[in-house]
Nucleic acid binder design. Structure first.
Lengths: 274, 274
DNA sequence: GGAACGCTTTCCGTGCGATGGAAGGGGTGA
DNA sequence: TCACCCCTTCCATCGCACGGAAAGCGTTCC
């Protein structure tokens, strides 16, 4: 007699197969770089059997990889694909000048773009002797109390500005939480061309930032961090301005994607001589 | 009378829904950072209607984004996810020391890992005044004729070594294509601790590299480029060695992923003060 | 002007592959 | 020894992925 079997009840009918696979990727974040199959299933809200199948496919596509300890992690393929995304292109164009800025100022430098109601940190550069920072590439930071955030906010449409100033969070005793005061600062930034934050995001840290402009307005903000003990504004502004100008020029050349179509993908980086 | 309609013929039955969605992502590469819907469909080998649906889902998940000119590009989400992958972790640990190395040598520096029968460039750092290079992060380079490649090859299992030396490609008149000669160089690298390449990959460029060691052996190679006119080996070896040691120490602390499970993903980078 | 072309978007009938409960095997700690 | 957790495989059902067709739109070319 054939075994009795009822069809499996769908956990979440209406979710497409693709969205389920992508929810597996979403199970990973900064605090969960490696996960077991069961963790993935729980965090993605999927039955283990389903997660098992999807994980297998994602591994075959190298979007996930399996570690020797049988845990899973995001695969190198995702990293490579991510380098094609706009933040990576911006980073690539800016990197030499960020480098120059670190050398001339000896400070930690940041490059950030607007991402909804937060700033997305695109790159953070520092030598081993400069002070560490909480901001990491791919992470977010607040708009109303950091120098880079203020620059981005000052050049944002009113809707973004209003949203960000609706209820400014307090990070330190020096954080400005009065929307009116911040608005006046933002207006001043538009005329002065640079923004400051004095311990408003983190105690003991002072920062100054300037906008990076692309063909269609302000695309990013470039900031320099310094300990509060030596906030010589004049020392920072000149090299910062030079770097911002240089990056803006580089950015203008980028981003007009290659339109030509080639049937076979080629690696433009590394081809043997004929 | 209802319209007559035959079921659509499956283009490639056997391919899973997930693999089709991923083939859309695979349509993008270094030479094709932005694509129209039709290009995606052709490159992925999918009917346009199918590609349209998949692209819509990937956009909803922010793995793709649509530009103002209605072309598609890899989304910032992929870039963020990619930062969780091993190459990005390695890069993050090494960055301050790469920075130091650029400052002390004034040269372009490379960090690369083994990826099959090629070297995967994890990071390339240079100021705006150092010479440009063909190697870009995420790109590949040959193992047998670059300094970083030789380091990786020297510390690889015999199978990898044999495969890479089966038919070494020629890049310049100075490229060594005799497997026996390369093997002797690799053996020498194991005892001397560093590798060189003198115009073997690119005319006019000289490079030297050293291994980065993690808990389980050699995990990466660190290299410095210089124009052929000033290949002072002694000047480069000392700072290179110091940086390699420092990075090896940093790497040892990384990679043991967070095992704790939290139901709600939190952003560890940026939390308001209580 | 208008025909031809390419690209995008929507529609919807079909049938196939995604689905997940169940079972089994393995490892670990009490 | 038992209890618990994790991973893996199996497979019967039916939900939804599939893609041809057609319509809309902008551009190019006689």
């Amino acid at each position: 007699m054939p075994r009795e079997r009822r069809p499996p009840a769908r956990t979440a009918p209406g979710r497409s197969a693709t969205s389920r696979a992508l929810s597996v990727l979403d199970a990973f974040d900064g605090g969960h770089r490696t996960l077991t199959l069961s963790h993935i299933a729980r965090r993605a809200g999927l039955p283990v059997a389903t997660a098992h199948r999807l994980v297998g496919e994602l591994c075959a596509a190298r979007l996930l990889s399996r570690r020797p300890d049988s845990r899973y992690e995001i695969g190198a393929r995702v990293w490579q694909l991510g380098l094609l995304a706009p933040p990576a292109s911006l980073r690539e164009a800016a990197l030499p000048h960020l480098q120059d800025l670190v050398i001339t100022t000896g400070r930690t430098v940041h490059l950030a773009v607007l991402d909804g109601d937060r700033a997305l940190v695109v790159e953070r550069l520092a030598s081993s002797r400069t002070q560490p920072t909480r901001h990491r590439p791919g992470g977010h930071t607040a708009l109303h109390c950091t120098a880079v955030g203020k620059v981005l906010l000052a050049h944002s449409p009113p809707a973004v500005r209003d949203e960000a100033l609706r209820s400014p969070a307090r990070y330190t005793p020096w954080t400005i939480t009065d929307p009116g005061t911040i608005r006046r600062q933002l207006d001043a930034i538009l005329t002065s061309g640079y923004a400051q934050s004095a311990q408003e995001h983190r105690q003991g840290v002072w920062s100054v930032a300037m906008p990076i402009t692309g063909p269609s307005g302000v695309v990013a903000a470039l900031g320099v961090l310094a300990p509060l003990t030596a906030p010589r504004l004049a020392d920072a502004l000149s090299p910062l301005s030079a770097a911002a100008t240089a990056i803006s020029a580089s950015v203008a050349d980028v981003d007009l994607g290659d339109v030509t179509e080639s049937p076979v993908p080629v690696d433009p980086v590394d081809e043997p001589a004929p």
